[in-house]
């Protein structure tokens, strides 16, 4: 059952930040509620004030600006899933969004809420780190700052956001020609047990740059640089033997969530790294 709370409906971003500053830890920003409300029902969170962002203008654009796909914090998973722009520029993101949770959650849950929850299972967080995305936040002092997606989640359910800060948008750099992303996830129960995004750049028939990020199996989504290094130099028509070292490096260097089934989590991440790399290779022009 939901605990008692008061819902506050600011009309501006400055007003929303001011309310968060005023109420401090007693307040929580609220948009889709798909993370916050279940946490409240389970007794994991009990904010006395919900600052509803849905009436705040300017938080829901979705377009290209300065060579990046700009996604407002209130953009829902469903909008990303169905966006022709996303399908054209970031097909791996559209693939990921199509598989998240269920249509009802995707229609309600927002990009900003997903990231602000700090949930270690977030497919979106894993993808954004690999894509080199940035997260823009506004605060009650009227200033904004931009943090790398990789620096947003500090620990499970704990982000770099200050109490009075609100995520306003995410910027995902448009992949240049010769670069492809692919995401893989494996679900045992409701949320993914492991997820992996691989970003590859190729020139002259071989991979020249690589990024590998894994989440869900680890306390926070994080890059696996040794696995990425093992992908550099492999040919576009790489076979299983070419991809195997990257999987092994990922399995060996992954920080596994304490208490998890460690051997299986490492195995899953190794498999997903190989499969994501194969999918990214297939999307690169020969």
């Amino acid at each position: 059952m939901l605990p008692d709370f008061t819902i506050l409906r600011p009309a501006t971003l400055a007003g929303a930040c001011a309310l968060l500053a005023e109420h401090g830890t007693a307040a929580a920003a609220y948009a889709g509620g798909t993370e916050l409300l279940p946490a409240m029902k389970l007794g994991d969170a009990a904010p006395r004030f919900l600052v509803d962002l849905k009436g705040v203008p300017g938080l829901d654009p979705l377009g290209v600006h300065d060579a990046a796909v700009r996604v407002g914090a209130l953009v829902t998973h469903r909008r990303l899933e169905l966006s022709p722009l996303v399908a054209r520029t970031l097909p791996a993101l559209a693939w990921l969004e199509r598989r998240l949770a269920n249509p009802r959650i995707r229609t309600t849950g927002t990009v900003g809420g997903n990231l602000a929850s700090g949930r270690p299972h977030s497919d979106l967080a894993t993808f954004l780190i690999a894509a080199g995305a940035t997260v823009t936040c506004a605060s009650s002092t009227g200033t904004t700052r931009t943090v790398a997606a990789a620096d947003l989640t500090l620990a499970p359910f704990h982000t770099a956001l200050a109490e009075d800060e609100i995520i306003t948008a995410v910027g995902i750099p448009l992949p240049p020609a010769g670069t492809a992303l692919a995401h893989q996830r494996f679900v045992l129960v409701e949320r993914p047990a492991a997820n992996v995004t691989v970003r590859l750049t190729a020139a002259g028939g071989t991979v020249t740059d690589a990024t590998v990020v894994a989440g869900a199996a680890s306390p926070v989504p994080a890059a696996l640089p040794e696995a990425a290094a093992a992908l550099i130099g492999i040919p576009l028509d790489a076979g299983p033997a070419d991809l195997h070292p990257a999987g092994e490096a990922a399995a060996q260097t992954l920080t596994v969530t304490p208490g998890a089934d460690e051997a299986y989590q490492r195995q899953l991440v190794a498999v997903l790294v190989r499969r994501a790399a194969r999918a990214a290779l297939a999307d690169l022009p020969a």
């Binding site: 279940p38 389970l42 269920n102 045992l188 129960v189 409701e190 949320r191």
Partner: peptide, 25 residues
């Protein structure tokens, strides 16, 4: 293939919600 009630050493059901206990979809 996947439904299972998991009990802790204290005898308390550990996966009593539909987030933790998966039913077929």
């Amino acid at each position: 293939l996947f439904e299972e009630m998991l009990f802790g050493p204290d005898g308390v059901l550990r996966n009593g919600s539909l987030v933790d206990y998966r039913i077929p979809t």
